Simulated scan of single mutants.
Amino acid sequence: MRLISPTRGPLSLEQVVANIRRYIEEAPQATYKLVIGTDSQTDADKTVFVTAIIVQRVGRGARFFYARQVVPPIVDLRHRIYRETEISLRTLEALQRAGLSAIGADFPIEIHLDVGQQGETRMIIQEVVGWVQAVGYTAKIKPDAYGASAVADRFTK
């Protein structure tokens, strides 16, 4: 998986983990949070998935990285939301295999889901939130799911 840093350009997973480590070492006394969110956009030709990885220094800024994936069009909304959730969880697993857990920082991890009480996605909130919680992570939905609905969304177009 290749990720993009807006300031450093393309990076491998290992380079992203190294960047996260350096960011934490700059202010080790700060409180951190890791957010992963995926959003998608579908048109007649394709579906674009964008996953954002955000390391937030709570109250003092953040760093983020994103990955873009283009697949044949997925028009079924339920299928797309499930795929977004799956990509976010797989990205977290890949980060952990690339050394994230070796950093030693004990920060909360949130999976941001592009679902909310308004609109068509409200029917599957319990399903995807339950999935994320069942594997041990905190799930956030709109309007609190900025990782998916703001950061990742910006790069789907």
Rank of each mutant, 00 (worst) to 15 (best):
P28A: 12
P28N: 09
F49N: 03
D76I: 15
F64Y: 15
G37K: 03
A44S: 15
G116A: 08
V48L: 11
I54W: 02
V132R: 09
T51Q: 12
M123T: 09
V75T: 13
Y32I: 05
A98Q: 13
V75Q: 13
D114G: 00
I53V: 11
R68P: 11
I54A: 05
I74E: 02
G119Q: 08
P73G: 06
A62R: 04
I20G: 00
V35M: 09
A62L: 15
R68Q: 14
L13I: 02
Q96V: 07
Q29M: 10
A62F: 08
T38G: 11
I87C: 10
G104I: 06
Q15K: 14
F49E: 02
I109N: 08
F107Y: 15
Q41E: 07
Y82N: 10
V17A: 03
G130F: 09
L77R: 05
V48E: 04
I125F: 06
V135W: 03
R57S: 03
G136P: 12
T42E: 03
P108W: 01
Q126K: 12
I109T: 12
A102L: 13
E26C: 06
V71I: 12
D45K: 14
I53K: 00
R63S: 05
T138C: 04
I54N: 00
L100S: 01
V58N: 08
I24D: 05
D106A: 08
I124W: 12
A62M: 11
D39M: 09
E86F: 05
R68A: 00
A105G: 04
R90D: 12
V128M: 04
Y32D: 01
H112K: 08
S40P: 04
R63F: 10
